[in-house]
Nucleic acid binder design. Structure first.
Lengths: 110, 110
DNA sequence: TTAATAAATCGTATAATTACGATACAAAAT
DNA sequence: ATTTTGTATCGTAATTATACGATTTATTAA
């Protein structure tokens, strides 16, 4: 029953969905996105006041959201303005819609 | 600028959304859910044939999906039948709808 | 020029995740 | 009674994530 770690290839949809989901998989990052959505953009400085974590930790979470493509940082010195990445956000929205519309409600055995 | 690790309290919605997102944040788990959705329920045995990972690894992923509440395992000896947890799946669906309907498209600065 | 501010990055510690093989266990088949 | 089958769990290794304080960098304000 030995199975290789074989670099499994997933569909782009699966890859991308899981990448987004992973980025959304931490309450601090959801809080950041929520905060961003309530501002018409915001600065990381604000986040440090709002979220009781070290600045470096928040910066790290911002980086992950950036890497996942969910936010972008525009330099607007002396601050960096973080915004939702509209296009990718909409993409994520569609991907999750697709995921949840694989309607499971017709499953009979449960 | 010292911040405590202070056990931050998040809203139930944030907690629950991040928990679901985390569970969805791995391609294998998405593949499992997809496979489950295409059967009218399935057995872990099938999954081992379909996904090139060790049985123990798949079992571990099933456990995480179970812990997140996204699937349930019904004993139907000699196998265990895994199914989507309808109620929680719908809950997840609603939570992600809520998340993505915090409409960010009115943000002007990006 | 110097100090202050915003943010990133570095180094590090700890914890969680992912994967494996081996083992255990319960029920079914032989 | 023994073997087979499906599944979980254990032990372990490697990787990734989370968090911190300290440092660095760039720019603005004094």
């Amino acid at each position: 029953m030995t199975k290789n770690t074989a670099n499994i290839i997933y569909s782009d949809v699966t890859e991308q969905t899981s990448r987004f989901a992973k980025a959304l998989g931490h309450p601090v990052r959801l809080a950041i996105l929520k905060y961003l959505s309530n501002q018409s953009c915001c600065f990381t400085g604000d986040l440090v006041d709002v979220i009781p974590l070290a600045q470096s930790t928040i910066s790290q979470h911002l980086k992950e959201l950036k890497n996942a493509g969910l936010i972008v940082g525009e330099i607007e010195l002396p601050k960096i303005k973080y915004c939702i990445h509209q296009e990718n956000w909409n993409r994520a929205k569609r991907l999750f819609e697709t995921l949840f519309n694989e309607d499971f409600s017709n499953i009979s055995c449960c």
